[in-house]
Structure formats: C-alpha cells, structure tokens
Design a protein around this nucleic acid. Sequence first.
DNA 1: TGGACTCATGTTTACGTGAACATAGCCCGA
DNA 2: TCGGGCTATGTTCACGTAAACATGAGTCCA
Lengths: 353, 353
Amino acid sequence: MTVADEATDAGQPRRRSPSMADVAREAGVSGQTVSRVSTGRPNVDEDTRNRVLAAMRKLGYRPNSAARALRSGHFRNLGVIMFTLSSFGNMRTLDSIAVAAAAAGYSITLIPVQHPTQGEVTVAFSRLSEQAVDGVMIIIEAHALDEADIELPPGLPVVVVDSSARYQYPVVDTDQAEGARLATEHLLDLGHHTVWHISGPVHSYSAERRRNSWAETLAAHGRPVPDVIVGDWSSDAGYRAGLELAARPEVTAIFAANDQMALGVLRALHERGRAVPGDVSVVGFDDMEESKSFWPPLTTVHQSFEEVGRHTVSQLIEEIEGAPPSSVSVLVPTELVVRASSGPAPRHPITDA
Amino acid sequence: MTVADEATDAGQPRRRSPSMADVAREAGVSGQTVSRVSTGRPNVDEDTRNRVLAAMRKLGYRPNSAARALRSGHFRNLGVIMFTLSSFGNMRTLDSIAVAAAAAGYSITLIPVQHPTQGEVTVAFSRLSEQAVDGVMIIIEAHALDEADIELPPGLPVVVVDSSARYQYPVVDTDQAEGARLATEHLLDLGHHTVWHISGPVHSYSAERRRNSWAETLAAHGRPVPDVIVGDWSSDAGYRAGLELAARPEVTAIFAANDQMALGVLRALHERGRAVPGDVSVVGFDDMEESKSFWPPLTTVHQSFEEVGRHTVSQLIEEIEGAPPSSVSVLVPTELVVRASSGPAPRHPITDA
DNA sequence: TGGACTCATGTTTACGTGAACATAGCCCGA
DNA sequence: TCGGGCTATGTTCACGTAAACATGAGTCCA
C-alpha cells in the first residue's frame, strides 16, 4: 500500500472519499474513461473496463451525486409533498411510491407540510424548489391549495394524488365515485330503503366525491337523500355520528366514508344495543388491514393504494424523461369487499320521513 | 433545430434557471456578495443586501443545491432506511422524523427495503452511499441486519431506531420493557392469576423485548409463565390466537404485543361469546388512533412515536454537525392507558395448570 | 497624524463530473 | 494501397457555488 491516500495514516484518516481522478490514477486511465465505466457506456474495452472496476472496488469509489447532478442537471430524485399525520391511506400510497421510484432508479425526498394553511404550503413549495428534485408529487387532500398561486419552478413536472382535479397538473386517484356507488348500491340491493352517510371533512376532495356519488346514487334509485353527517375521518367522529344515528330507529344502513369512522359507528351501535347487521348495516371505505378483524368484520370498499402509487410514479417519470406533459388523469378502480357488517334490511323497516 | 440554446423562439424558451452570476449582474455586485446574502452571512451592508434580495426576487433565483453540496460537501439531507409496508408505528415515527428534520432545515430521503433479506438490505445501503445524505436513520426491526457486514461509507453518521441494540450505532427506541411491565402488572393488579401473551414475530427485537419483560414481570411476581403464542403483528394473527385462547376457560387476561393483534383477539372473544372484560381482560400495545374506538375501547400501552422521531433526528444532526459520535442510546418512556377492555378477574378464576 | 484595526466587497479558485471535441489505431472496400 | 469510417481513449472545459485571499475605505486611539 504505497498509495497516497494512506500516507496520512497517523493523525487524520484521510476522509475525503475517492474521486474519479483517484480511480483513474489507480487504473492508469483518464478520468473520462472512469466516467464512461461509471455510467455504463458501451464503448469501453472489456479489459479496460475490468481494470477500472477493480480500481473502483479497491478504493471504495462512489460517484458523487452532487457533482453528477450539477453537471447533468438532473438528480434522479422525486419530491413528495404531504401532510404530516396523514391518513392511513396516504401512508400506504407513499410506501408504494417509494418502492416504485426505487425500482425506477429514483429516490424520494419527503417534504412534510404541518398545517393545511396556505402559508405553510407555500413555504413547503419554496423549500422544495431549492431541493434537488426532478419532479414533484403532491398528496394533499385539502381545498387549501385550490386558489393558491403555487409557485413552482416553471417546467418542473408535477403529478397530483388524491386531490382536486382543478389543478393544471395530471391527477392520479382512486375512483372515489365508483366506490361510493358500489357501497350505496350494495346496501340498497340488500333491501334498505335508503342509506345514511358519514362524510369526511368538508375540505377534502375525496370526501366530497364520495359524498356526491352517494347522493347521486340514491337519487338515481329514487330514494330519499338523508342529511349528511360530517366527520373528520377519525374513529371518534364516527363514534359521535354513530350515537346520533343509533338513536333513530329508522336508520338501517350506514355508509361511512372511511373504515376508521365505520369502526366508531360499530362501537356506538354496540353501546346502544343495536345489532350489526341485524338492525343496522354498516359499510366503510378503504379496506384497511384491520377492517376484517372489526366486530363484526367490516364490509367496505377496497382501494388499491399500491396502484395509485405506481401510476403516480410512472406518470411523473414519464414526463421527466421527456414525454410531453400529459394532462391525462388516472382513475384506479375500486372493489366492494362484502363481510359481515352488512345484511338484509330488518323485516319491518320504518320508512323514514 | 439550429442552436440548442435559449436563442430558440416560439414555444419553449428553454430557460436555464438563473444563477448567482445572473443575480450579481442584475444587482451590480459580485457573485460572492450574492452568495453571502444567500447564505445569510452578517457582513453585508443593509443596502446591498436589499438590492441583492430584490434582484433575486425579480429573477426568481433559487440556489442550486447540487452546486452548493458539491462545493460545501454537505447536503442538508438525511436518509431513512425502512421496510416497505412497515408497521403503523414506524410510519408515525417516519412522520415525526420528517417534521423534525424539516424544522432543522434538513430534508429526508426515503430508501425503501422490500424484503428483510440480507441481499436487499445491502443493496439499499449501497444505493444509499451514492445518495446525497449527511447521515442515515435505520428503521428496521429485523434481526436480519444483525450479522450483516453493513457496508456504509466510513464516517457516515448513523442512528438506529427500534431495533437491535447490538449495533455499533446509537439507538433510539421506546422503552419496550417498561411498557410490557406496565401492561402485565396492570392485569395482575386487577387480580388475574397470570397473563397470557401474544407476541410479535420472532425476528423482531421489539417483540422480543416485550416478551421478555412480560415473562420477567410474571416471574418477579411468582406467577406461572404460560406458553407464548407467536403472532406477526396482524389482526388476523391476533384473531387466530384469540380463538385458541378463548377455548381455554382458565384464560382471563391477555396481553397482546400490539393493538392490531388485540383487535383480532377481541373479535375472537366476541365470536366465542366470552365477555370482555367480564370473562377475559385484554391489553394491547401502541395506543393507535383507533384503539379507543375498539369494542370495547382498548386498554393499551401508549408509546410516543413523535418523541422517538424527534430524538432520532436530533441525535443524528448533533453528530453530523460535529459532536463526537455518541453511543448514547435513548429510551422513550411509555404510559399505560386504561380503558374498558380490562377489568377485575372473574369471581372464581380457574387457576391454571 | 499615522498606523493598526474593522468591515464591506471583489477576485480567484476548486469541488467531481460528463459533454464536446480531439486523437490515434484499426478495418474494409475500391 | 489509400482514404473514409469506426472504436477506444484522452484533453479541455463549464456546471453554480463558497472558501480563501485580496482590496480599499473608514475608524479609533496613541
């Protein structure tokens, strides 16, 4: 080991990681040849390539991504803007985004937004524009962004997930309307006269679309559309709504806008002694891991967060890598999962007012 | 197409984003002064600073993080290595890591690992070392890493979360042992003769520590230690274990290693007609959002993922910013949350074999 | 009043990489 | 046999930034 690196052995272990130049020297080639090997170019002699690879291994060479990015102008890195304490579903989506991105050779930078205020979001965006990202995914369900003059670096590709369709960007989302329709029709098919709905918060587009679809489905079947109870996705809100509905004997079918609220509804119904599904049927939305273990196991609408994540990444990367900025939106289909929380309407249903 | 530059006309003025030099020209100062303003150095005349800031705004200048990183040698970016489809708790931890990092001016890069095989993990690490990170957090509960010759760039700061303490790196984790002790003693205090345990998977350190602490606590009170039932954190596994335990009349107290398995236990007990907590008391671990809406609301051990995330980030940043590589580990305390799923032992408990 | 300060600002340079261009050896067909 | 084209490799340079050093103007006290 007569190499210069180790020369400073005594005091400071030479910390600087080896550069292309070091490898070039070691392998007896030019830096450019190292670069060619490093980026997998074909026009390098097999012999030379092996010599370079050996030198890389020997020195523990790792390409410097900063220099690479500076030179080439792209980072192989995607930004994800997301609310903190985000919903279960968004987390699943994030997860599949990370996997899909890694598979495509991209990494993921997380930009958390704490509060859905315009200011916070704008800050996140401006922080983002200093970040080394080639594109951005926005997973923010709130209306808050609607009128925002979102200041993104011009030309930065963006894909929006689970949010307003009013953006100028392509949107990937679960087919919320289809899911809500499936849930509602399932209950009607079981003979229920109508279906009560516990909705997600007003600022959420997903909630809005599920709510609209539920109402439209009832109307299409000529059924009365009961007043909506607005929740906030939490099981607590579901519980409160459930208490309210449990007190009304005419309620026989409840469609909660997510599984957590459905869980709260189940608890309220149990507490009030109303049998599920004997007296009241309950259907949720999401099909979270735990739903099949609720008591009783929950009938719900399955949505594929994995698919949403995959589509989002592929759409974004496509745009980054030169495809024309498509404004095509993707709707991922849903599926009704029938379990034990829904059943035929009671023999003598009290038709409502 | 003639020239590839921005000289082009109609549609896309292929605009390179403005650099320091552009701002300097606009403001009539040197690039170095722009740099000083950009990095917030104090020694710039107020007047000049304003002129520069105005020029930045006018041109829409954003510092180029790649160049900055290349020049300064650090990225203000932290890597998180994490399993996909990670547990609810890990997601919460990730969330609070992202927030804490953002507050400290760092961003987060997610490196997902798909399978807990040695190969996959090694790949993730090597991918990481090409990444632009100043430090790494590892959130992997598996033993898999134990004997791994994890090849990390030497000198890269690392903090491990929720995993083996056998690493050479500092560890931040919930005080699993305390939590399991609290749960077990709570049940003993209620008069139960002993406590059955449904454990997490064998490869998990968290599971191991909870299991050990449960057994030690029973032993310390001179109680028999029943055979452990091993689950996999899922509510399904809890359900299966619950069916098994429901069939044994001597079982009056169950401590599940997480809330999801506890949920499955509750379902099994309901199905078998065993009253909770009348016949059987159930305690979980995690205190997830939904646990208070279980039927009945679940007594469980609260752990603060937020605190774990905060400690992890601050420990890592401390080391990055020059503190000596501390090997100090942090244990975040837990708290017992008593709800309705646990109660006094039945009047005539059948003392076990 | 002069010289040793301080402080704002400018000039030069290097960080590691890869595109563009340059060169040298080789093959192949006319 | 020659020249054109091909391949492997080398040389030069710029990407945008910030550290190091340089400069010049003002300040303060002996």
